[in-house]
Design a protein around this nucleic acid. Sequence first.
DNA 1: AACCTGTTTTTAATGTAAAAAAGACAGAGG
DNA 2: CCTCTGTCTTTTTTACATTAAAAACAGGTT
Lengths: 310, 310
Amino acid sequence: MKGNSVFKRCYNHCLDRLAQMAPGAGLPSESELAQRLEVSRTTVRAVLAALAERGIVRAAAGRREVLRLPAAADYFPDPQTMSAVASVERRFMDWILQGDFRAGQLLNTAELARQFGTSTTTIREHLAQFQHLGLLERRPNSAWLFKGVTTEFATEIYDVREMFELRATRSFIELPADSGPWQELDAIEADHHALLANMDTDYPRFPRLDERFHHMIHASAQNRFILDFYDTVSTLFHYTYRWNKTDEKQRNTTALLEHLDYIEALRSRDPRAIDARCRKHLRTSRATLLRSIAVGPFRIDAISSPGAQS
Amino acid sequence: MKGNSVFKRCYNHCLDRLAQMAPGAGLPSESELAQRLEVSRTTVRAVLAALAERGIVRAAAGRREVLRLPAAADYFPDPQTMSAVASVERRFMDWILQGDFRAGQLLNTAELARQFGTSTTTIREHLAQFQHLGLLERRPNSAWLFKGVTTEFATEIYDVREMFELRATRSFIELPADSGPWQELDAIEADHHALLANMDTDYPRFPRLDERFHHMIHASAQNRFILDFYDTVSTLFHYTYRWNKTDEKQRNTTALLEHLDYIEALRSRDPRAIDARCRKHLRTSRATLLRSIAVGPFRIDAISSPGAQS
DNA sequence: AACCTGTTTTTAATGTAAAAAAGACAGAGG
DNA sequence: CCTCTGTCTTTTTTACATTAAAAACAGGTT
């Protein structure tokens, strides 16, 4: 009745650690493992029992040791390590971005539960999430309305995002130059240069770096609503990145360069320059999102009206 | 297994209508009633059956007529007409505002379900709502953390609200003077004068008018995130209004006058003047919220640090 | 005492079931 | 042909049950 994804994820995580140990080596205590893997000792015990069962460790009394190194076949397949909730989120996003749903369509929970192989409870919980993303509308005692990933949606998101990010930069430049966020900025900038130097092979690493940069900026506003908003839309971006692969390397290169300009402006602490660079980057980013939307099937009409971006 | 609050609310609503009819008069068709009462015909039928059972209407074939006028005893008691969800929201808010919870406290669903007399399912659904209000934080596979109605909370809310409301006024003054929102503004202003003239008796009507005014402003931004944010925090305000009654008449009078200044600025369509008046009003409003917080038990410390309002 | 592990108790995640409300269908009457 | 009502079907809401995971407890070893 409850998935054991925590167990499976922990098991795999454990195998990763064992792979770096020599056979015959002793294992840390249960409590220590629990702390490192960020799960309860109960889960650790279950994992250790499973490892013993598979002959990877031996559960000798008082002392546990590695019997053999784990092979690829020992791992649980990746999809199973996702919690039911995360799994639904991903599949739902894929559906939306692939155009399986159309704007104005009514969704019913039983149907979705069947499609996604979970219960209505889990579906409901997630529909509520998407409601806050502005993609769904709840009709009490009735079905859910899919409002569509339209140009209006993108425009509304970016309007708010621009307000929030500009506000966050104001807080950021107030911070002392030796504070944590500024050190983080140094590290982020270095990573930008490193990525740029190996762009041909490493460009898929950009989204994570992008997320890290903007998250840091938003976090410095010290405002839960600003940060929550960013985190929410950032999962949306995550899925659009995953799905729209056209021109990826070129787009990422452009964004990296814009980030560097933006960072330079932040160092100048000149609000005017910051506003200009930040706005420029967000305009590009918004255009990317709009293009992702336009590329999707059934969506060509969504950008047909000229000037809709204004 | 499912409460019948829709039925009860509809039943009461129906009695209100019958009270304005003469005995012996005929009733509209089921479909028509359903449309007017905004429920399904199924519910209307159930209500009509119950009314017949109680001898208030007669279900003669082909024609239905009023037998007697409803009395106060015929109504379902008000609390029962609230959906379980709305009921939990209210009780939870009361708990929070009365200081039954303290910042940093862990909540567990089973306990709350017991306290509120519902199931864990309903509780969970509502905890998720409050998470978006920024009052709770979810610890996966663990309890929920109550973050407290603190001065930081009020500051963060009002920072965002100010950004949003100012942005909304920009959209508002772009609208043509004969558009719906401007006509609504005329009506709202008239209601302000009317309320001001009968302040001694009517001051409790202010919160609803306040809600209507700010909602209209926010709506003209045509941005779902801005409007959703306002609607969410506005329920919070609703409960603080309900609970903090000190100086109520005085506070409402001040707010009304500030609204009128604000409206005057809107008519001038001068951004500078609008910013000044809007900010002034929001500062007052924030101070009111902060005072509500401070008055609550266990909360005195929340405003003890001078300059926290800055 | 501090720590480690075996056991027991709580609690959150999530599937299932039943009732209420919505919606679809169909015959009857104007 | 349209509307109105009686019947049947779907779907949402909500309580409850069950399992995974966490937390508390307790005895044992150094």
